[in-house]
Design a protein around this nucleic acid. Sequence first.
DNA 1: GATGAATGAGGTTTCATTCAT
DNA 2: AATGAATGAAACCTCATTCAT
Lengths: 219, 219, 219, 219
Amino acid sequence: MTGPHLSTTDSRRTSRGRIDKREAILDAAFVVFAKEGYGKAGVDAIAGEAGVAKPTVYNHFGGKEGLFKEAMTATAERAAAKSLAVLTRLGGDVDDLPQALRDVGHGLLLCYTSDDAWALRRLLHAEISRFPDLFEKVWGSGPHQLTEALADRLARLALAGRLRLDDPVRAAEQFVALLTGPIEGRSVLGTRTVPDDEVRATVAAAVETFTRAFAAPRE
Amino acid sequence: MTGPHLSTTDSRRTSRGRIDKREAILDAAFVVFAKEGYGKAGVDAIAGEAGVAKPTVYNHFGGKEGLFKEAMTATAERAAAKSLAVLTRLGGDVDDLPQALRDVGHGLLLCYTSDDAWALRRLLHAEISRFPDLFEKVWGSGPHQLTEALADRLARLALAGRLRLDDPVRAAEQFVALLTGPIEGRSVLGTRTVPDDEVRATVAAAVETFTRAFAAPRE
Amino acid sequence: MTGPHLSTTDSRRTSRGRIDKREAILDAAFVVFAKEGYGKAGVDAIAGEAGVAKPTVYNHFGGKEGLFKEAMTATAERAAAKSLAVLTRLGGDVDDLPQALRDVGHGLLLCYTSDDAWALRRLLHAEISRFPDLFEKVWGSGPHQLTEALADRLARLALAGRLRLDDPVRAAEQFVALLTGPIEGRSVLGTRTVPDDEVRATVAAAVETFTRAFAAPRE
Amino acid sequence: MTGPHLSTTDSRRTSRGRIDKREAILDAAFVVFAKEGYGKAGVDAIAGEAGVAKPTVYNHFGGKEGLFKEAMTATAERAAAKSLAVLTRLGGDVDDLPQALRDVGHGLLLCYTSDDAWALRRLLHAEISRFPDLFEKVWGSGPHQLTEALADRLARLALAGRLRLDDPVRAAEQFVALLTGPIEGRSVLGTRTVPDDEVRATVAAAVETFTRAFAAPRE
DNA sequence: GATGAATGAGGTTTCATTCAT
DNA sequence: AATGAATGAAACCTCATTCAT
């Protein structure tokens, strides 16, 4: 459910030709980079995984660096879209606010703990000094955009009198931090699956703390 | 102030012999690993930085893997000691609780944002799949120990009637998350220095939220 | 003045079709071979320089080897024609023999030191072991034909009593050697332009020596 | 008699260690470069010919370019020494001048037509644009030094009243040109062995022309 | 204990060439 | 006839590691 191929049909078996090869290489590249890291990943292995010859990789992406950048940004955009979609559950009329926050929080944590998301974060941490401009694209299309969108929703809830907060961006950052911070260690940076009850407990605790701090008292 | 050499006297210039060479190699190794990553770092470069010949590295550490593990754990322990020392400021009688939390929070963030700490986290993220047992040592002696010690302090404050909380470990996790979560993006994973006022604002906001959620009302 | 394109109109801009493409490829090939050498020259670069796609090169010339041979022989024939044309200045009635020899010598040296001629010689030296049969075509249509034609003229001058020589071919070889030998080093194998006064001095010296050895005394 | 190894004992079988490996690599490099050309010669093949591993070549010479330069200059110096030694036959008292010139001319032509000398010239022609500074070393230690030394001898003969010439360097250049020029085509740039009688005839003709032009008349 | 020299394995990249359109 | 895309082979070079001193 978390592999990079699942948003499209598996194109490596089709014979539609060019565009599919490009996609296949990008997907294979992310898989191999995630498993081996940028340094130890071999273009050989990527080409093999994609079912193409090595020079084809170079024809499409120029080299290992370009391939890495494109594979990262492509996966980042797919992951970002998923997490943004979760936020829609916080729109319109919210009846039970804590329940809605728990719902959204759970959805966000599922995105956060997906294999692809962990791989993205690990690779970004690992190679940020070799690819300084990668942060902007990956983080910008992911956590940053998510924080902004969440801040929008929180601001609307504040206007509706449901929350009391001055700085919606700060509140959004803190909401995400309360969700994800305790998970980092418990999942051993993504190498261990966190049991669902642990996830739910973390979400519940985050929402509890968040509402204690920000929920407006019902009259 | 953040380099790995500064907690001890620079041993590479002395002539005390064996132990100094060992330290020099460990320090040089962490510097090079931090700059290049495990995969691209060369034993040549490490030996050069340490001022010894390559086989000497092998005589002491057996190989690149062993050297990496030892360099990581050594730096992790040094970093952990620093952050634990910060917690002592929360001991004994606490008069102004928010002020004390801000003080501790600021100290912890300074540790968290040190160059060595960022390098540790980046390398741990990068190589966790190649060195699965490294997490235990590095995280165990760092964030985990810190969370436990902080939970102790918070429990004592709860017993003293200053905080209202059921699960001190959860509260400690959340306090750390509120501090560090918003900093991650703002520092571009450690490649940009965060201005001090931004740090202080983050600390203030974290303590504000934490106290709103957990502080016991003064009678 | 020495480029391979200048003896014909630039055909790459016309739309006459096939034959022009062939010429364009041949010209581009010689340019690239001359700059990079046979080994390092890429068919990609040649196709790009000619403004055609790579397979077109293969359709016309079969491969890199065939292209090289044809480009070499085409340029060799063009260069040979130029140097043969110079010899006509030694025909008919020669009044001032040394002056006529200087005239011809100067013309021959201009041919010899043209960029294309140097490129031809360098490529021939470089690849003679990989293309043994290339020597026959290039040398045969160039220096060999020139020597024979010059020998004819010298024989006629001998018959006319102006020169004293037994072996006209040998004399022709020596005349060319006296001209070109001293230029080889001074032009750094064609990578430096020899100043005109140096060229003229060399011609004068060659003719002086030649006439001292072979001129019949005027009665 | 012309291989690059013959000035020393074959060192590849000895076990004296370092210095011999360096020599063995240089010799093997020249052999392979001469056979394949710079572009197509592989470091693999050179290492194999030298009986060492590939990285050893890189440890000693840094790369293919450095290896090429050193192999060329080393061979050039060896070849230059041989041709300079020939000139000693023109020293002291010269009784039969034409005979002495024939003797020297024959010796010089033997040097000129040695396999190593041809390989040097071919490689120099081939790669002069990629290694512009190579000309200085190879030509400077070879033909240039030879011309200068020969000019010295001719000047001395002129002072002794045996020759009549103004510019000894020019005369030396012309003597060499008369010797080598006619040989170039006849040996197919070194890929065909010129029969000895052809060599002797060329020497005789060169000396004949030279003496006709420069010998002082005996009183 | 420390080192200069050497190595086997593997890395990224480029090239001449062909296929299907 | 001309081309964009793909490929098998091989190039140069680097690395972690060991040996003999």
